[in-house]
Simulated scan of single mutants.
Amino acid sequence: MLQLSIACGDYDRNRPLLDGRVQIDGVEPVVMRLNPEEMFFRAMRHEAFDICELSLSSHTLRVSRGDAPYVAIPAFVSRAFRHTGIIVRSDSGIRRPEDLKGRRVGIPEWQLTANVWIRALLEHEYGVRMQDIYWVRGGLEEPGRVEKVKLDLPEGVRIEEIGPEDTLRDMLADGRIDAFIGPRAPTSFVPSNPGLRWIFDDPTAEARAFFQKTRIFPIMHVIGIRRTLVDAHPWLPMAVFKGFVESKRVALEHLSETSATKVTLPFIEEQLRQARSLMGEDFWPYGFQPNRHVLDYFAEAHHHQGLSARRVDPSELFHQSTLESYII
């Protein structure tokens, strides 16, 4: 048995693997439940984990440069429609995406996967180019956040770095920026604060329309395995992939048992039925082929936005053994 560190988020789809109900063949796990910011920082700066959740954007960037420290498997443990990722000041006069043109918009980092998706959404669905916005970059809740990678921005893109003592949350509150884009809302974005709102009156309706048009459920994170381990143990990627697939299956089976709701949130049964009606029985698919169109869309946007040095073919992101499966 290989004793390997596994760092990933404490999501329902990961939990059967993290708590031992699901095993990875040949692996004795040392489990760490961490938030994305810590995992990604430690993985990309220090290769701190044997198996870990990775930002799709950071991994794509490193693959494009030829220095990726991890090999991914197509277990997409984090996905999200990012129509809720655009938050505006209520008094800004911004009522629709087109109103963002010429405005000062805060971002924690240019290369965040959520921001790649949001910029692609703005350009393709609403005609708002990245050059149309004046970007303001820095820490959301704490000062001093840096961009993890060196950027080669497309012509015409403007990014201003905030002051060393500033935060985007405070700048949004006092009007120095008009809007914020990112995967995590500022702590000031609460129902009791009428000063901030989503740009869409009904983000869910916008997301449903986007999916019906494109069949895209945006991917945020993949699972990576340290490249040196993969080279030494070529059986490992498929073993890890099978473990995450089984973990998701157990989680969805648990979620679907609604005689006693497993999630502390009302309307779960209705939302499950709506998701399956719109997106199919497997509404959160793992595997390369079912997600090829999603990954192609992302790879094109990633390169267009100046992040990947070349247009990466999505198959390059994953270990070859996980791109196909046997048939009985």
Rank of each mutant, 00 (worst) to 15 (best):
M1K: 12
L2E: 13
Q3P: 04
L4G: 07
L4K: 08
I6K: 07
C8E: 08
G9I: 08
D10T: 06
D12Y: 05
D12I: 09
L17N: 06
L18S: 07
G20H: 05
R21V: 01
I24R: 05
I24P: 03
D25V: 04
V27F: 12
P29K: 12
V31E: 12
P36A: 15
F41Y: 12
R42M: 12
D50M: 10
L54P: 08
L54V: 08
L56C: 07
S58L: 09
S64K: 08
G66H: 10
D67S: 12
D67I: 03
P69I: 02
V71F: 08
F81L: 04
F81K: 01
I87G: 08
V88H: 05
I94W: 02
R96K: 07
E98H: 00
E98Y: 00
K101N: 01
K101E: 00
G106P: 11
L112M: 11
L112S: 12
A114W: 02
V116K: 07
R119F: 13
E123K: 12
E125I: 00
R129C: 00
I133A: 04
Y134G: 01
Y134Q: 14
R137K: 14
R145K: 15
V146M: 07
V146P: 00
K148M: 14
V149H: 09
L151Q: 15
G156H: 12
R158N: 10
E160D: 15
G163V: 03
M171P: 06
R176Y: 03
I177P: 10
D178G: 02
G182D: 02
P183E: 10
V190K: 15
P194G: 12
I199Q: 04
D201C: 00
A205T: 01
A207L: 03
F210V: 02
P218W: 03
H221I: 01
V222L: 13
G224C: 10
G224Q: 11
V230D: 10
D231F: 02
A232W: 08
W235G: 14
A239K: 11
A239Q: 13
F241T: 08
K242Q: 15
K242N: 15
L252P: 00
E253S: 09
L255C: 04
S256L: 11
T258A: 06
A260D: 02
V263H: 03
E270A: 15
L272Q: 13
A275E: 13
R276M: 12
S277H: 06
G280Q: 09
F283C: 06
W284R: 04
P285D: 08
P285A: 06
Y286A: 03
Y286C: 03
G287T: 05
P290H: 09
H293N: 13
Y297I: 02
E300C: 01
E300K: 13
A309V: 15
D313E: 14
P314K: 09
L317R: 09
T322A: 11
E324M: 11
S325Y: 09
